[in-house]
Design a protein around this nucleic acid. Structure first.
Lengths: 215, 215
DNA sequence: AAACTGCCAACTGTCGACAGTTGACACGTT
DNA sequence: AACGTGTCAACTGTCGACAGTTGGCAGTTT
């Protein structure tokens, strides 16, 4: 018995399209042609349309009436505003995590940080995977499903602005330090400090993104 | 010339359906039949489907594969989690408003509060309209479009849990006091205090909703 | 009487086709 | 040559019909 393995065509199309948009396979600024992509995926326009609207609701596409769907390219203003939202959400998550975390939550956070350190000392770059894992672990510890969901969506939009983020070694090092400091605050149950550190962390990431954005 | 007055059928359907869901014309727990509602609106299933999916993305409907769309009825847990999200967003908005507000923003906030007082003194109930106007004015002063958008969506979901909220006079009085105190903090540019007051305010509102929810 | 089995109606998921709109190109005008 | 106009192809918006799935009901068995 494989219960949810029978995803609808629209659902499959959402996954494929999301991947193509996030990886840049469909470049920023370009349009998504309904008939073309539908043929390409071997489905009808109906389910594809549904998928397009879904991604638009996630902020990964912008719809223009009678024109079609475009993958948005962000201005520096957009980046700033988006990080204000992300800061609001993740600072709250950090506070909640500090006051609700179980010992198991703490262990997981520490594990992720330790693996990042090992990676870094081995001279390898700080993989985005581990950064995501850290923030995900923090969200799990916060136990606030609606906040977690919104953070997921915002993180996706941040990825859309992929601008060679994880390439700057000093930035990587600073991010890892931030993560470590966050874990300490969470371990202490110090919600105020967790929020403060998270705010500084995201402020740094935002600044880094703004420098690497061509405008 | 009326540029955007030619809304698509799907767009119109979204407006009509949203109204029906929020006012309870379509009661919580009930299902939305695609063919029935489509005929009722005089449109085809395509646009209606699109409208349903859109409202689902706003959290006003929940989709069950092969079963249809249902208007969700929330558990106390849901209310708590939703208010954690709302608190994260609106506290951040209050902080931003305190640091960015113009004199015009301040005047508008004060006007809304004054009108609420006048209403209250006249023995009339505190209309939800004025409460919305206050929070909207605060969001305008915060000048953070993404946060504002998310707050709008969350407020909608809160309305969905309409449970005779504005009927308790002591609660109304407390809410107005909170609003006044918020305006003072924002006038002073005291971001920390604005956040604190907003948190207390929403905590009170959440508690009020929980007491009036049958469970 | 309770439980199981098979059928059925209702509904959602999907498809192909038609209609209306948009932006662009070619042509004609000044 | 620059500008305005008319035409057209391409694409989105919409529709009606078909296919697959689900939950419930009737009939049967123990």
């Amino acid at each position: 018995m494989t219960p949810p393995l029978h995803l609808s065509l629209a659902g499959q199309a959402v996954d494929v399209l999301r991947e193509q948009v996030l990886t840049g396979e469909i470049p920023a600024g370009s349009r998504v042609n309904e008939v073309e992509v539908a043929q390409q995926l071997g489905i009808s326009r109906g389910p594809l349309r549904e998928a397009i609207r879904h991604l638009a609701s996630e902020g990964l596409l912008t719809l223009v009436p009678h024109r079609g769907a475009f993958v948005p390219d962000a201005t520096p203003e957009d980046v700033r505003a988006l990080f204000e939202l992300r800061t609001a959400l993740e600072c709250a998550a950090a506070e909640l995590a500090a006051s609700r975390r179980t010992d198991a939550d703490l262990v997981r956070l520490q594990d992720v940080c330790a693996e990042s350190r090992r990676n870094y000392r081995a001279g390898q770059p700080f993989p985005y995977r581990l950064d995501l894992a850290f923030h995900q672990s923090l969200l799990d510890a916060a136990r606030s499903p609606y906040i977690a969901e919104q953070v997921r969506l915002v993180q996706q939009r941040v990825v859309l602005l992929r601008s060679a983020l994880a390439d700057d070694p000093p930035h990587q090092r600073a991010s890892m330090d931030d993560h470590d400091e966050l874990v300490l605050a969470i371990a202490d149950g110090d919600a105020a400090k967790a929020s403060t550190v998270m705010r500084r962390h995201l402020s740094r990431v935002c600044a880094q993104m703004l420098t690497s954005v061509t405008h």
